[in-house]
Amino acid sequence: MLYHLMQYFGDAVPGSNVFNYITFRAGGAVMTAMIISFLIGPWMIDRLKMRQGKGQPIREDGPQSHLITKVGTPTMGGLLILVAVSLSTLLWGNLSNPYVWIVLLGTLSFGLIGFADDYSKIKGGHSAGVSGRVKLLIESIVALAIVLCLSSSMPASLSTSFAVPFFKDFLIDFGIWFFAFGGVFVIVGSSNAVNLTDGLDGLAIVPSMIAAASFGLIAYLVGNAIFADYLQIHYVPGTGELAIFIAALIGAGLGFLWFNAPPAMVFMGDTGSLAIGGALGSIAVATKHEIVLAIIGGLFVLEALSVIVQVASFKMTGKRVFAMAPLHHHFEQRGWAEPTIVIRFWIIAVILALIGLSTLKLR
């Protein structure tokens, strides 16, 4: 909104030209989202506590310590993130840019799916929410719509292709199969991987911000013809504006972390984790860095793989590979303290992000 106001008034407002710079507006988006989170956080947490009563139902087959330490903590804290991200993006973003609307509405859609799941858990008083098959079907439909919209907004040469990191100008054109792979596998996979990681206080939000910051840089470079040419990465006009949305997501994440730091006052729930994962997947598709997402978001991949391996192993052999899945629960069962697991996983997320970013130059 501010961008369009400054465009309208032009020279009548001194210094209005700074709103033409994505970096300036990204800085404003970070601060705005963070301030919104700080301001409405206590009010929202109080309302969630009042409406939820006993808070988020704790899974009985999880670590038994959680039945004591985390009982009564409200969930749906992802609403705080979504409100802050939406308001900040609408305030600082270029609202004529299709990528901004596609990613924002896609994120809110995944947030709505997560909200329905959280609401079902609270209403039913148990950790089982919406049926997994139903949830996966709806997620796939939303993801497919996102990919179709993104593909129609980018150059035809890129719309159905995957860029391969470490290689210059190397594209794999999947044709019509790209929509299924890009939509279901990348976006839905990312959404559920973040969801599986959200099991300890502060565990999911910091790696999410690290991944978001990495893709904020990628979006800015991919959307800039000069930088894209210098780095020999694929230029996707307009994607630089996604840096505003990503900056808002980081600011909202920082504000949420204030209340989610151990011991958490609120959990993000599926409302937040599905939305954040969906956002990261959508941005990866928009910037043609789907494969790089698997590197930068490698922590989420490991968490998801641990569940897949555990389930497959138990069904085929009757034995479990891990003491408990997802992976962070395995280390809990091995005696690691929660803060130790969380901080070490943060370190892993930073290392993977640096490796992922190195692909921008190593070509």
Score class of each variant (00 low, 15 high):
267 F>H: 05
197 T>N: 10
188 V>T: 13
249 L>F: 15
244 I>E: 01
259 F>C: 05
249 L>N: 07
237 P>T: 10
250 I>Y: 02
199 G>K: 08
194 V>C: 14
262 P>D: 11
243 A>S: 13
236 V>T: 13
216 G>C: 13
239 T>W: 03
235 Y>C: 09
245 F>M: 13
193 A>H: 08
251 G>I: 10
179 F>K: 01
213 A>T: 14
179 F>R: 02
253 G>Q: 15
248 A>L: 06
208 S>Y: 02
191 S>L: 04
254 L>T: 02
186 V>G: 05
231 L>G: 06
251 G>C: 09
185 F>P: 04
186 V>E: 11
254 L>Y: 00
236 V>M: 10
204 A>H: 03
234 H>S: 13
202 G>S: 12
267 F>C: 05
267 F>W: 07
242 L>H: 12
194 V>S: 07
213 A>N: 01
245 F>L: 15
273 S>D: 11
267 F>P: 12
212 A>P: 03
249 L>A: 14
181 F>P: 01
262 P>R: 14
210 I>L: 06
212 A>F: 04
223 G>I: 14
220 Y>S: 09
178 F>T: 04
254 L>F: 15
196 L>A: 07
243 A>D: 00
256 F>G: 04
265 M>L: 10
218 I>L: 10
263 P>D: 06
195 N>V: 08
245 F>G: 02
267 F>L: 08
271 T>D: 03
205 I>D: 07
194 V>W: 15
249 L>I: 05
262 P>S: 10
227 F>Y: 14
268 M>E: 08
221 L>C: 14
260 N>R: 04
217 L>I: 15
198 D>L: 04
258 W>P: 00
272 G>P: 09
260 N>I: 11
246 I>V: 12
250 I>Q: 01
192 N>S: 06
212 A>L: 10
191 S>E: 03
243 A>P: 00
234 H>A: 11
191 S>P: 03
273 S>R: 10
216 G>Y: 07
248 A>Y: 11
196 L>Y: 08
259 F>Q: 08
228 A>S: 14
231 L>N: 07
181 F>H: 01
248 A>G: 13
231 L>P: 03
225 A>C: 00
213 A>S: 12
188 V>M: 10
206 V>D: 01
